[in-house]
Amino acid sequence: MMDEQALKARLPDSVAARIQTIKLTDGTVTLVLEASGLDADNRAGLESAVKQMLGEAEGVSEVRVAMVADRAPAPPVAPAPKTPRIIAVGSGKGGVGKSTLTANLAVALARMGRKVGVVDADVYGPSQPTLFDNKGAKPEGRNEKLVPVPSRHGVPVLSMGHLVEPGKALAWRGPMAGNAMAQLVDAHWGDTELLLIDLPPGTGDVQLTMLSKFKPEGAVIVSTPQDLALIDAQRAANLFETGKVPIIGLVENMSGYTCPSCGEVSDPFGKGGVEDASEGTGIPFLGRIPLAMEIRISSDAGSPSAAGDSAEAEPFRDIARKLSDWLDAASKSEAAVSKENA
C-alpha cells in the first residue's frame, strides 16, 4: 500500500518541490501545489501530469489537485502629503500693511531655505497677485483641489484674485467667504512646509472658519502706531487667544517716514505705540517697518522688498528670522512632548 512519501517519490523533483501538502485517505490523494510563476496553461498541464502519475499508483482511485500562488506584493502606498504648518497674519483693521508684511515675510523665509506658500484669505480685497506679480494667472484643478500659482520668488500663492476677473466685486455672504478660504488652504501645496495666511481685517467669518478647520500654529498681529489701529489689533489678538492660538508677536508698520529731500524723520502715524502695547500685554514685539516710498514702489511692481538686499529689506528679514526661530522652538517643544508621551 502506497503512503504519502512513496507517492511524492513518483513525481519529478521539480514537481515535488511545489508540494505544500499531500494526503492519502481511502484511495483518494489530495495535493496542494504551489503554482507561483505559472500561467494558466502551465497550471493546467501540471495538474494533468500529476493526476496521471499518481493515478497509476497502486491503491489510488482518485487524485485531487489544488493550486495556490503567493499573492503579488501590494503596490507601495504613497505617503499622505504632509500638512503645512500654518501661520496667520492678521490685523484688526484694513490698510495697516498686513498683506505687504505677509508677502515680504514669505520671500524672506524662502530665501532662508524654508518652503513657504501664501494664502490670500482676504476674499473681498485680494492683494497677493499684485504683490507677487502673477495677476491674471489661473490655478489649475487636480482631483477637485486647486494647484497654487507659482511666483518668480519661489513662493506659491493662492488668492481669490486668481479666480475672479480683475476688478470684479464679490457680493458674498460670510459663510461663502469662509468656504472660499477653506478651498484655498486645502489645496495641492506639494512640498510646501509653511503656509502664511494673509487674513482679511477684522474678526469675521473667514477668521472663524480658519480657527475651526485649519487652526494656525501661531499668529502675527500687524498694526500702525495710532491708537485706533491698536484698539482693533487688540481685538484680533483676543480672537486668536480665545481660539488658543499663540500670538507670536506684534509688528509696528508705517513707523516713521524719512523725507527723501531733507532726510528729516517724521511720524505721521505716531511711533512706539505697538511696542508699548507689547510691553503692556506681554506679547513679544517683533519689530517695526518704516513708511518708505521704496517699499510702496516695489510692492506695486510685484517685487517685495525682501527679494533684494536694500535697506528696506532688513526689517522684513529681521522679523522673518524671529519667526523662523519661533517655528524651530515650537518644533522642538512638540518633539519633546511627543517623546514624553511615547
Rank of each mutant, 00 (worst) to 15 (best):
M2K: 06
M2E: 05
M2R: 12
Q5P: 02
A6C: 05
A6D: 07
L7D: 01
L7I: 00
L11Q: 12
S14I: 09
V15D: 12
A17F: 09
A17V: 11
I19D: 05
D26T: 11
G27L: 02
T28W: 04
T30W: 12
L31H: 10
L33G: 13
D39G: 15
A40W: 10
N42D: 14
N42F: 01
G45H: 14
A49G: 01
K51W: 08
G59L: 01
S61Y: 02
V63C: 15
V63K: 12
R64E: 14
A66G: 12
M67P: 03
V68F: 05
A69V: 11
A80H: 04
A80E: 13
A80T: 09
P84F: 04
R85K: 13
V89S: 04
G95M: 01
T100K: 02
A106M: 06
L109R: 07
G117F: 03
D120R: 10
D122Y: 05
D122Q: 09
G125D: 10
G125Y: 06
S127C: 09
T130R: 07
L131H: 00
L131D: 06
K138A: 11
G141K: 03
R142F: 09
N143A: 12
L146N: 05
L146V: 11
P150C: 06
H153E: 15
G154H: 08
L158V: 03
G161S: 08
G167M: 10
L170V: 15
W172T: 14
R173C: 10
M176L: 14
M181H: 08
Q183T: 09
V185L: 11
D186L: 04
A187K: 02
A187F: 02
W189E: 01
D191Q: 01
E193H: 05
L195D: 11
L195P: 10
L196S: 07
L199W: 06
P200G: 07
P201Q: 08
G202V: 03
D205C: 13
Q207L: 09
K213N: 11
F214A: 01
E217N: 13
A219T: 12
I221M: 03
V222G: 07
T224I: 00
P225V: 04
I231C: 06
R235W: 05
A236L: 02
F240E: 01
K244T: 11
P246T: 15
I248Y: 05
N253L: 00
N253E: 01
T258W: 01
T258E: 11
P260I: 13
P260A: 10
D267G: 01
G272M: 02
G272L: 08
G273H: 09
D276Q: 06
S278M: 04
T281W: 08
I283D: 00
R288K: 08
I289K: 03
R296H: 01
R296K: 08
S299V: 10
P304L: 05
S305M: 11
G308A: 13
S310E: 14
A311M: 02
E312A: 13
F316D: 02
R317E: 07
R317Y: 11
R317W: 08
D318S: 15
D325V: 11
L327V: 14
K332V: 04
E334P: 02
A342I: 02
